[in-house]
Design a protein around this nucleic acid. Structure first.
Length: 562
DNA sequence: TGAGAGAGCGCC
DNA sequence: AAAGGGCGCTCTCTCA
């Protein structure tokens, strides 16, 4: 058996399976099984097919609960998302029901938002999901999978196969990470909060330190109460004090010479800690010493992941002290150094830049050949090139970079021009950016009409430039996401093969992976991360001279990794 | 009273 | 760290 489609019955332990060949054609009849988890476990143990799942995130957590680990899968929903974006139908519904409806020429249902889906289930009780046209879900899954394979084969960009596989493997990683959880010491987190904010206040009251700071702010404004949480109030207070400001952002306040500034800045910092990662956060998100957010694979347009719950991708450095390996365990913190510039060097095929990117410190290497050894100028030039810097002072250094590395700079500038003129751009493996927004189209149309005003022209230029910055960055950020997706898949495969028994992926943040493992396999786990990075580099870029350092630091405490 | 926009800030 | 793109989250404030 090569592939096996599996579809759970709604609100039941049962489901359907059907074996398929590598072209997605059925090898036998549909089988109804009463105990779907057990049926999957048996087949996984027997011959480990590539499981074809409507959405791994829906079914896999149930399997993991029963300790059933899948080696390989195809996630039809994620695959559909990649394919429809590639075909220029970005944002169309991606669910199995939607894909099936498109295939059959039926009205396409919207993707149900998770909350809406839950509400609907509560409303209608145990209702089997109905597909457009009344098809059986398992038949729809078989048909959609076969159709996706056909569409994939018709795409000239061969990398999309790799991306589909890596994205599907990522969906398995995501569910496994939620199950494993990030080790979180509530006692240490409490100590951090007590140290910075004072003892825990009764619910609804501010902590002591915030009250003190608010009092100091009031005193600095001649005893007049100012709500530090209200930007409007803060702006008003400084304006009354003869320091007119247009916003209450920290970097604006920092420039002011006034006794309220210092306590106000400290207040803002601590208030955010209290609101975002304080006692309430701990009670909501930490269970049994683990933080378990929901990971949304490809949740960002560039292919980066998003999360739902607990702000998992914005954990402040101050509370990372609470992330501590279990007794007898270590954390492996591996992150890619200067990933995006390296991606550009390899992506553009700029041999001279690739040569510089063979160094451990890319910026120093660039500086040595193009900026008289001035590392900071090399960095400004590189970042300005990647992000489309608008400030005037970046222009001369970007010019110097362009003279020395014309191929790499031309690559992102072509992407920017594509965006400005309304075209879409793609990552190396074929992830496709959204088409221009309606606002962009309207602005361009208005500016092209006879008698368009100067304001219309300028607005059109502005929206075009904005989109150019987006597509310029997209090709690099999305290719970086390609690379990390392949890396995760490669790392997962190594761990499943047993290179570091007991090691688990517990956290992933754009270009950083954290593993949790028994002491005795820490070296092997770190090695696996490094090898996975090398494999990703080889699969994306072949034999590029560009190095992608991905060294895993072995620490007990996450805060010690940086 | 609740929804939604806007401001602000955390992370990469 | 840069500085720009992207997010999620919480707070205030306004409006129905």
């Amino acid at each position: 058996m090569v592939r096996c489609v599996v579809v759970p019955e709604q609100d039941s332990d049962a489901g359907w399976v059907r074996a398929l060949d590598d072209a997605g054609q059925p090898l036998g009849p549909v089988e109804k099984v009463d105990d779907l988890v057990r049926a999957v476990a048996d087949r996984e143990r027997a011959d480990g097919p590539r499981w074809v799942l409507p959405a791994a995130g829906d079914l896999y957590p149930r399997l993991l609960e029963a300790d059933v680990v899948l080696r390989r899968c195809v996630d039809l929903t994620l695959t559909e998302g990649l394919l429809i974006a590639y075909a220029g139908n970005w944002g169309a519904p991606r669910s199995l029901a939607a894909a099936w409806a498109r295939l059959m020429g039926l009205p396409v249902p919207d993707d149900a938002a998770p909350a809406a889906r839950q509400a609907q289930q509560a409303l209608f009780g145990a209702r089997v999901t109905e597909l457009p046209g009344g098809a059986a879900p398992v038949d729809a899954a078989v048909a959609v999978h076969a159709d996706q394979l056909r569409r994939l084969a018709a795409v000239p960009q061969s990398g999309l196969h790799l991306l589909v596989a890596a994205e599907s493997a990522s969906a398995l990683v995501a569910a496994e990470m939620t199950r494993a959880g990030l080790p979180w010491r509530v006692d240490v987190h409490h100590a951090v909060l007590a140290e910075l904010l004072g003892p825990r206040p009764p619910a609804g009251l501010p902590p002591r330190r915030l009250t003190e700071l608010a009092d100091q702010v009031a005193a600095a404004f001649d005893g007049r109460r100012v709500n530090p949480d209200s930007p409007a109030d803060v702006v008003q207070a400084f304006t009354r004090a003869g320091l007119p400001i247009s916003s209450a952002r920290s970097h604006v306040l920092r420039r002011l010479d006034h006794p309220a500034v210092a306590p106000l800045l400290e207040y803002k910092e601590l208030a955010r800690l209290h609101a975002a990662n304080g006692w309430a956060w701990l009670e909501t998100w930490i269970r049994d010493g683990r933080f378990r957010p929901d990971w949304i694979v490809g949740g960002v347009v560039s292919g980066r992941w998003a999360t739902r719950g607990g702000g998992a991708l914005q954990i402040p450095h101050a509370v990372r002290r609470a992330v501590i390996a279990d007794p007898g365990h270590q954390l492996i913190v591996a992150d890619a150094a200067q990933l995006e510039p390296r991606i550009l060097a390899a992506l553009a095929g700029d041999d001279r830049m690739a040569e510089a990117a063979a160094a451990t410190d890319l910026y120093s290497a660039l500086a040595a050949v193009a900026f008289d050894g001035d590392r900071s100028r090399a960095k400004v030039a590189m970042l300005g090139t990647l992000y489309g810097a608008t400030s005037g002072d970046a222009a001369p250094v970007i010019g110097a970079l362009r003279r020395r590395f014309p191929v790499a700079v031309a690559y992102v500038e072509a992407a920017a021009r594509d965006g400005e003129t309304g075209r879409v751009v793609r990552s190396l493996l074929g992830r496709t950016c959204p088409p221009p927004s309606r606002g962009w189209q309207e602005a361009q149309e208005r500016a092209s009409l006879p008698g368009a005003s100067a304001a219309d022209q300028s607005r059109a230029r502005q929206t075009a430039r904005d989109r150019g910055r987006f597509t310029r960055n997209f090709v690099v950020q999305a290719t970086a996401a390609d690379w990390t997706a392949v890396l995760l898949a490669a790392l997962r495969r190594r761990l499943l093969a047993g290179v570091a028994p007991g090691a688990e992926i517990v956290f992933f943040q754009h270009d950083e992976v954290v593993l949790h493992c028994p002491d005795e396999v820490a070296t092997e786990a770190a090695g696996a991360a490094q090898e996975a990075a090398q494999e990703a580099t080889r699969l994306l870029f072949g034999s590029t001279p560009v190095r992608f350092p991905f060294e895993g630091r072995i620490v007990r405490n996450y805060a010690d990794a940086k």
